[in-house]
Simulated scan of single mutants.
Amino acid sequence: MTNSSVQPDLRPLPLPPLARDPLVSILVANYNYARYLPDCLNSVLQQSYGNFEVLICDDGSTDDSLRVLAEFAASDHRIRFIAQPNGGMASALNRAYEQAKGQLIALIDADDTWHDSKLDRIVQAFQQNPAAGMVTHQLRAEDTDGRIVRRILPPRLDSGWLAPRCVNGECLRLPPCSALSVRSEVAKSIFPIPPIFRSSADRIVQERALLYSEVAAVPEVLAMYRVHGNNLTGLAGPLDSLSIQKTVAFLENVWKARAEFVCEIHGISLQPDRWRVAEGSEYQLALSLLAKDGKARPDVSLISDRKRRIAWSILTRLPDAIAIQGLRFWWRPNPVKRFTDSLSRLFS
């Protein structure tokens, strides 16, 4: 067993050859997204790659979701749905996964849509990268009126064997739920996702997949990510003390699940303390900044991500009122950030 102060020697697990035309099991967790479900499911049914099944768990919706799901299931035998009392995103994905028969598992949020070639490109990527247990791609973010919030999300993607960077507390460039697909061998270790993750369960899918095997990235926009009040934090940091405290509580659960998974899969014992420093310091800085109490702030040098470390070095040198405005500007989507993202893609 390895002590948490030592950098562990993690190695990807081998994967067997993938079938030529693998069945893709598409998992959908739905809660009160009746108005978005038709666009979501139609985008799946219009895929140019046709060997798939759609497994939907309705998580106690109180809107018209069950009627919409029943109509779609009656119109296409590849769609099956389950209804359960509200238990959260992880619980719903777990129930959907129980029905999965595919060699590949793909996730899509009930309010998102896929481009027609999405599954074709994903299957191709798995075939071309036999060591990859997860394939990711980029998305376009739109609001509920179809206005573009961000043309490419994230601007760049990380790939390869990312486990050492993850356990080092680095901030990895990975997309949200609707851009994640994994091999069934990896999915067996991912599921069941701890039900404590009532939201953002895709974070656990990301982490467990990259801690198991290599990641392949398709640098193309293959889906639309819908931005609205319920998921705005997917594009912005927490902007008040209560939200930051909730984010830190969520991260504590992520770190605990990460340590348990590394121990289970690799037989290496790690303590969450190593991530509280590397990944949690900026949130402690934000809390101290918003408190305006003049107390000493956490050491900026402890932040693992270079870009964040530079930003915080600047913020901590500014008067509190200006620094808070700077924090809100940094953690919110805005035209300047979109412009700089575009420039970075041009010169990368």
Score class of each variant (00 low, 15 high):
D202R: 01
E185F: 08
A286M: 08
W312P: 12
A132T: 08
M1N: 07
Q46H: 10
S43K: 00
C263S: 14
S48F: 12
E207P: 12
I105T: 04
L285I: 07
T136I: 13
W255P: 00
Q46A: 14
V248C: 06
I265Y: 10
G267K: 05
Q46W: 11
L287W: 01
L18M: 06
L346A: 12
V24W: 00
T62P: 08
L18Y: 00
G160Q: 00
A278I: 03
A249F: 08
T233R: 12
I303V: 12
R147Y: 11
F329P: 08
P176A: 06
G229V: 06
V221D: 00
A201D: 02
E53W: 02
P22R: 03
V215H: 00
S181H: 05
S288E: 10
A323N: 11
L239Y: 01
R332P: 07
D112I: 05
L343E: 08
L327Q: 14
L66M: 07
F72M: 01
W312E: 02
G146M: 00
L174A: 05
T136K: 07
E207A: 15
Q284C: 05
H77D: 13
E264K: 14
N94I: 07
W114R: 05
Y212C: 06
F250S: 05
R198A: 08
L327E: 11
D240T: 13
L23E: 09
H115M: 09
Q46P: 06
K295Y: 10
R121W: 07
G280R: 06
E264L: 15
V248M: 03
R150C: 10
I324S: 10
I152P: 00
S313V: 13
Q206F: 13
L37P: 03
